[in-house]
Design a binder for these strands. Structure first.
Lengths: 147, 147
DNA sequence: CTGCATGCAAATAGTTTGCATGACG
DNA sequence: CGTCATGCAAACTATTTGCATGCAG
């Protein structure tokens, strides 16, 4: 993120370093994940990837995402209703806001989360390893549109 | 919750008030949801219900849960991996902690969430309608068990 | 009685898996 | 060259839906 190496490169190098092979399909998938700011779903990633590698299969997309999840470079955001979205830019837990109308997702700034974890840990005795904080609302654009 | 009427009664009355029919299956399902502190999944609710109404179908469980979600008396907690858990005791958004080993879920005390929503609203222009805050960790019991 | 609720089975959607073929290292 | 990745199709799982029958109001 500091300029002399891109997130794309970082993820590719990490895969390489773990002994995984670098294939054009994987590069394409990682590239979409590294460059998408809109927290894409599998379908969206798939559609982007086949623009450049039309033979790529959905299974490969799933397998690659799964691989990236395992090495901790992609976060899956499950929304119960069978719609997973992915964050490949910042895989560490952080808050999201999803618009309930247009389904867009953004990353708001919000501190005081780590403190919360610690407070919680002390209070409950749990060893906190992760968290998720999602807000649901109506984005400014959708508020303007007449129902 | 204040003694002179139970959560079960409240939910049944609300269903009745909205014009829905009160069937023994619905009572049984609502009862499980109203009395379970462990945030049960559909399978668990189903298994409890057929103890008393062996003919109850899974479809009815799903339909009733869906109904209760619509009238705002049950919260669905989706965990992406196709494992929904439900909270029928306190349907308003509140934090959870799930143990990543035994999958138990408890409700910790944690204030300062509403402030967060307001701060967020002011910052992003979103009209926040809901949120979810889930922590993942290892519960005290599971920490004792040797891996 | 009348219509909504039930229960069964089939349909659906998202995701995973097995296996033969192909290509990275 | 050997092994791992790919792509296809079939398998899976959780959930939804259609429809005939049953029961609540």
């Amino acid at each position: 993120m500091n300029g002399w190496t891109s997130r794309l490169d970082y993820m590719v190098e990490k895969l390489k370093g773990k002994g995984f092979r670098i294939t054009p399909q994987r590069i394409a998938i990682v590239e979409v994940l590294a460059n998408s700011c809109d927290h894409p779903g599998v379908d969206q990633i798939y559609r982007e990837v086949i623009k450049r590698f039309p033979t790529t299969s959905l299974a490969t997309v799933y397998k690659t995402i799964s691989l990236l999840k395992e090495i901790g470079e992609v976060t899956e955001m499950g929304f119960g209703d069978g719609s997973n979205r992915y964050d490949g830019r910042n895989p560490h837990p952080h808050p999201h806001i999803m618009c309930v109308k247009c389904k867009s997702i953004i990353d708001p700034d919000l501190s005081s989360l780590n403190e919360m974890s610690k407070e919680l840990s002390a209070e409950t005795g749990y060893k906190i390893v992760s968290h998720r904080l999602d807000f649901f609302g109506v984005c400014p654009d959708c508020q303007k549109k007449i129902e």
